[in-house]
Amino acid sequence: MRTPFKSGIPSSEITSESAWLKRRQLMTAVAGGALVGSALASALVSPGASALAAGQSLRHRPATANSPAGFYTTESLTPYEDVKRYNNFYEFGTDKGDPARHAHKMSIDPWSVRVDGAVDKPGVLNLEDILTGFDLEERVYRLRCVEAWSMVVPWMGFPLSDLLKRFQPTSKAKYVQFYTLLDREHMRGQRSFTSSIDWPYVEGLRMDEAMNPLTLMAVGLYGKPMPNQNGAPIRLVVPWKYGFKSIKSIFRIRLTQRRPKTSWELIAPQEYGFYANVNPQVDHPRWSQKTERRLPSTLFSPNRRDTLMFNGYGEQVAHLYKGMDLTRDY
């Protein structure tokens, strides 16, 4: 079944960087004010963003057995409640339950994503542009964490390539760098003085990985807007890589000529590589990667299964790494 979509937004509608900066300054000024300020702020709130906050369903094309290979799986889904309460989002604490407890403090309204670096048309996408300007589709992906657990999640979003093309990457664009929001006031993990992460969280992809049709910018799951603890309002999903590559709550995207250093690479390069492809033959020093626990598990059955090369997406992505030694480029 297909639902009608609006066509893409013309580049004239993309907010320029200077306008975006001004808008943010205004918001900051407004946030400082009292009653008058909040009245102004609500006047500034976009319709798209408030639709997100209300928890309504978003229009999208569902994934089916007829979807292109890799976009769908018949494996049983990890229940919505479990996807929402078992998260690694260290900005809100390191316990799996911390994001569900604390992520509501993050404000996703208003939200905009700045795209700059090696692009012909740098600019800013506001959340309402994102929600109305892209064809949203469902993808049912396996998600494999480097800690050896996995889930099956019905995401909703659009290919990252659709987004990047609008900003017209130059020939110098070899890598894509992503930044999570930096907000010490509302993200308690960023305030922790015992954390070794240099905030904001940074991730990266090679250009061909970014342009692969599997690489998704997700704005929701289970047909609903993205819960804060899962990376609202917009996050990356790269199903053939370990979960930490799928960066949450993206605030900025920068195209670069040189390979960016990612947050985990900076902390422990011997444990976390830039590529981080799911690979049962290359063990992480602390967690064996040969098998995984598919969640939910029960007390009596760990629901353990063998981990697949590229998380089972080899057909779609193995060609990207031809000639590379994946034990070295892990």
Binding site: T78, D82, R85, Y86, G97, R293, L295, P296, L299, P302
Partner: peptide
């Protein structure tokens, strides 16, 4: 907590 399903989706690890 375990028998009442309060340990989350990965009760074995939590326990």
């Amino acid at each position: 907590a375990a028998v009442n399903y309060q340990l989350g989706p990965d009760p074995g690890e939590k326990l």
